[in-house]
């Protein structure tokens, strides 16, 4: 469904993506992992057109995304940091995004699911970080698109909301959506992901099922596998 070919991106002197190739199957659940600065966020932002690659192509369903914007109709995205215009009300921000997409949405259902009704008429500047993150989730999930991209979705959520989010994601998985997400929480990967995309120094180090990675590193669980990758990586750079 998504195909990155020979993608390169530099920020100044810093090479973030180096000739990266990656293919994401339709209906797969992918956790994007990697150390800080390995290019996780850049990978996602390139897909969304927020970062423009220096070279290489990204195709969604066989169509190149460069210079396009209509393809984003089919993508739901949840950014890492939820920060909204401070003087708009919750219901206004929701209707703004609906307005932009100009589409029906299941916002009411999600508002109820996360218990946001009491906040609808409050200004966004008066909300706590957790509540803002809930609004962020509603905005991301309400259009029910086949491709869902989540950047650190669990940031700032209380345990109850976290549970609800996981349930929600699980439901979406069942409905056959393609999901890409980044996270630092290993348990979330273990619980949700089918496949892992492990980035290292701007390249795909590993792509495949969790089990495959464990096998490769002869580790008993994911944490150890990752620790192993890190230590090898550190060695490599030391040499």
């Amino acid at each position: 469904m998504i195909k990155y070919s020979k993608l390169n991106k530099k920020f100044g002197k810093l090479e973030v993506l180096k000739n990266l190739n990656l293919e994401i199957r339709k209906g797969s659940i992918n956790a994007i992992l990697g150390p800080n600065g390995s290019g996780k966020t850049t990978l996602i932002k390139c897909l969304l057109g927020m970062v423009i690659p220096d070279s290489g192509t990204i195709e969604i369903n066989g169509k190149e995304v460069k210079g396009q914007w209509m393809y984003r109709e089919e993508i739901d995205y949840m950014p890492q940091i939820a920060n909204f215009p401070p003087n708009l009300k919750v219901k206004e921000i929701i209707s703004m995004i609906k307005d932009i997409r100009n589409r029906e949405a299941r916002d009411l259902e999600l508002i109820e699911y996360f218990g946001l009704q009491p906040f609808l008429n409050k200004q966004l500047s008066n909300l706590s970080g957790g509540t803002k993150q809930k609004v962020n989730i509603v905005l991301a999930f309400m259009f029910d698109n086949p491709l869902l991209i989540l950047d650190e979705p669990t940031n700032g959520l209380d345990p109850v909301a976290l549970l609800k989010l996981k349930e929600l994601i699980a439901k979406e998985i069942k409905r056959g959506k393609t999901i890409l997400f980044t996270t630092h929480i290993i348990r979330l990967v273990e619980e949700l992901a089918e496949d892992i995309v492990f980035l290292l120094e701007g390249k795909t180090y590993y792509q495949g099922p969790v089990a495959g990675l464990l096998e490769k590193h002869e580790a008993k669980d994911l944490e150890h596998a990752i620790a192993d990758i890190f230590s090898t990586h550190v060695k490599e750079t030391a040499e």
Binding site: W69, M70, E73, I75, Y77, P79, I81, I100, R101
Partner: peptide, 11 residues
Amino acid sequence: EFTELLLAQPI
């Protein structure tokens, strides 16, 4: 940050 959210919208 909100602009980034908007950038991910079909616009």
